[in-house]
């Protein structure tokens, strides 16, 4: 038997996840319209959807965030019609999630959201390159990793700052009040 308070919490959680997924998908679409690859390095992305994932990790737990990651990746692939790329996105997204979740658990005291976002962004790139290396059966693709790492630091900092402002703003809302972690 679940009490009324628990039920209300569960409902809030579900609504938060739904809103975050929608926002993450929209950010994913916006991002696909910005051709960063043409003047930086192919495969470099702003990682805007990561804003929602890291924010979710801040308020909710790992299981809920994993749900968000999978939902966002599937929905974005369906909407953009990049289904053949699903394997790469999923590989990157899951590795990035694993790294951010791990760092959130073990070194929250030493790293701010910016550091976690940077690590997540770089993990995303490594995951995607890893999947690509498997598919084209060549490790040459890692030639681009150093440049992607630098791009990942830049975009990770921007995403981290955005997450900081977003969590701060959402934390003042009634709906999120129960989920603000104490630290």
């Amino acid at each position: 038997m679940t009490s009324l308070a628990e039920e209300s919490l569960l409902l809030k959680k579900t609504v938060i996840l739904a809103i975050f997924s929608a926002a993450a998908v929209v950010l994913g679409i916006v991002e696909s319209l910005i051709p960063l690859g043409t003047f930086m390095v192919p495969g470099a992305k702003l990682g805007l959807a990561n804003i929602m994932i890291l924010t979710c990790l801040y308020f909710l737990n790992g299981k809920d965030t994993l749900m968000l990651v999978v939902l966002k990746t599937l929905l974005t692939a369906m909407i953009l019609g990049t289904f053949s790329m699903l394997l790469f996105s999923l590989f990157g997204a899951l590795l990035s999630f694993a790294v951010m979740y791990g760092l959130m658990k073990i070194s929250r005291k030493r790293l701010s959201l910016i550091g976690i976002s940077v690590a997540g962004g770089i993990a995303h790139n490594i995951g995607q390159l890893g999947a690509a290396a498997i598919v084209i059966d060549s490790l040459n693709i890692f030639y681009y990793l150093p440049v992607l790492m630098i791009a990942g630091v830049a975009t990770g900092i921007v995403v981290g700052i955005a997450v900081r402002y977003l969590t701060n703003a959402l934390g003042h809302m009634k709906m999120f009040a129960a989920f603000v972690p104490e630290d």
């Binding site: 550091g115 940077v118 770089i122 630098i150």
Partner: peptide, 20 residues
């Protein structure tokens, strides 16, 4: 709190040095 922590700077530093 501060925007960035010491750990962030160390992490970013290591990544940039490795890439360069």
């Amino acid at each position: 709190g501060k925007m960035m922590k010491r750990g962030d700077l160390i992490l970013i530093g290591i990544v940039l040095i490795a890439a360069l």
